[in-house]
Design a protein around this nucleic acid. Structure first.
Lengths: 302, 302
DNA sequence: TCGATGCAATAGATTTTATCTATGATAAAA
DNA sequence: TTTTATCATAGATAAAATCTATTGCATCGA
């Protein structure tokens, strides 16, 4: 039994005439007759009583026709649903990002998506790198935005931009008055870091490979905002990725925290997008990647 | 798109493995791969992301799979419904009878049907001959029980039995004491008849082709029971088909009415069953016909 | 680094199914 | 009786599904 047969049956029940039903179905009358017969044989019942003069649908036939109509409606619905999802730039796109990117980059990107990819439904998932990479490998996410390098196995990685780090220090700190700072300047400072698992912690540590005791590393913030609060309360200094630093905050040296550029633009991290080589959302991912690039200062782009 | 493709899709979504899904579906892996691909192409969307290592169902794929499952369940239901109706002696059998048969024959037959054809669902329709014949010709009834001869066009007619007529007269009528009566005996009597349209009226008139004035024919009962009441009230005499005459009433000459046999057994009517030559319920009709015969006095059978 | 392994895709042949045209059979209508 | 309308049948053909064998690719183990 297949859907086409049911369509033929319903057509006959509508027209009570094999020829007209066949015409309606764009097939020849013998074809339709044969398929109806096949359907009846496969079901093992008579659905239609026909002579060369009359076509009657049997009581059972009427019941089957009703069920067939429902079935066909559902099938049409399924097809319509698929058709509505044909636009490669539409539908759900499951995006994974890390906590040190999501709150700063997404508010910039989302409005752009709404504007330029209005049919895309971004589903955002935020977690640490290794977890979103696992979800990517399990086929549960379509696209990641994270800091590289990262062990991604066979996944495709495309570098997007280099995000500089800023030094964040209490406003009354001696470094706060310098135009720019160097790694040497922070050699003896107390560096505040995120808790284990955040890649930003590892990147920061890498730049500050200095003889800090474990005690000094005991401060382990759960988010950049916590870190910022700790700096404001003069617990130490830290490195913040540029996107987490509000432009105005830099210019006006506002509030309790002062943000300073490093003299070496290499100090920062590379942000990349990651996806499976065989992803079915390649189109949407590429388009979205381009969109992100337009939201980023040109000089950062790689 | 056809149902088999959807089964393949659901299988892959269950096993996440083309080979195993193919095995489950009793087809080769290339077959299943090709059909899935065909399905995706026809829908114009990607449902499965596959490498030689992983098989992921896309978000849209999961939606389609859910719809496919519903569709397949409904299809299985349809098939099961048809299968349950395969027994030719089961299901609805639409039976038409005339008012002068139905109330007397059916109470005898129905218990027999319940006993010997327990799965048959007799749907009873009672109306005058020409109306049930029309319904038969329109395919709305499967089987008629009526008195012949009757103009049935191309319909099949099978005579069942000859039902004698009894004379029904008031108990104090002079004919009520005779063992049997002849047509001559009723020549000058007032014959009470049913209203126009009942074949019994025509049959009775046929036997009594006598010079009754229109006035005398003015009594036109709507049912045999009305007719019986009129006899009881001594308005005249009438002919009643044997099935409408309770056996006890004959023996004991009970109540106000006396029933007398005719000396000529030809005085009566032939009861037949009628069906379309191409009816799909031939089996049930034949079986039921046999059943009816067992309920009828042997000497009546034709 | 190199075969071995597992898996989906591809190729080509084959079988099955659907479809077509032409014709037959039958009953009603002219 | 001929014509017409209608569904069924026959035989040929086209389309589709399916099979076996193989390829290509990535992973795993030595």
């Amino acid at each position: 039994m297949n859907l086409k047969d049911l369509r033929y049956l319903v057509a006959v029940s509508e027209y009570k005439h094999f020829g007209k039903a066949a015409e309606f179905c764009y097939v020849s009358q013998p074809t339709l007759s044969a398929q109806i017969k096949k359907l009846e044989d496969s079901l093992g019942v008579s659905l239609i009583e026909r002579t060369n003069k009359n076509v009657f649908i049997t009581p059972l036939g009427k019941e089957i026709v009703e069920k067939a109509k429902q079935l066909l409606n559902q099938a049409d619905e399924l097809i319509a649903h698929a058709k509505a999802s044909r636009n490669p730039l539409a539908g759900a796109l499951r995006i994974g990002t890390i906590p040190t990117i999501a709150p700063y980059l997404l508010p910039v990107i989302i409005p752009e998506i709404k504007k330029f990819m209005p049919d895309l439904k971004p589903l955002l998932f935020e977690d640490q790198t290794h977890r979103i990479v696992k979800k990517m490998n399990d086929g549960e996410l379509d696209m990641l935005i994270l800091a590289v390098p990262v062990e991604t196995g066979k996944l495709e990685v495309e570098n997007l931009f280099h995000e500089p780090f800023y030094l964040a220090a209490p406003s009354d700190h001696e470094l706060a008055i310098k135009d720019s700072v160097s790694l040497n300047d922070i050699h003896d400072e107390t560096i505040l870091l995120l808790e284990e698992g955040h890649c930003l912690r590892d990147h920061a540590l890498e730049f500050c490979n200095i003889s800090q005791s474990d005690d000094e590393l005991a401060f382990r913030a759960t988010s950049l905002e916590t870190l910022r609060q700790m700096v404001a309360s003069k617990a130490g200094i830290t490195l913040l990725p540029a996107l987490a630093v509000d432009n105005k905050a830099i210019s006006f040296n506002s509030d309790l925290i002062s943000y300073r550029e490093f003299n070496d633009s290499q100090i920062g991290r590379d942000i990349a997008i990651v996806y499976r080589k065989n992803t079915v959302r390649k189109d949407a991912i590429c388009k979205l990647t381009e969109l992100i690039k337009t939201c980023i200062p040109h000089e950062w782009l790689i």
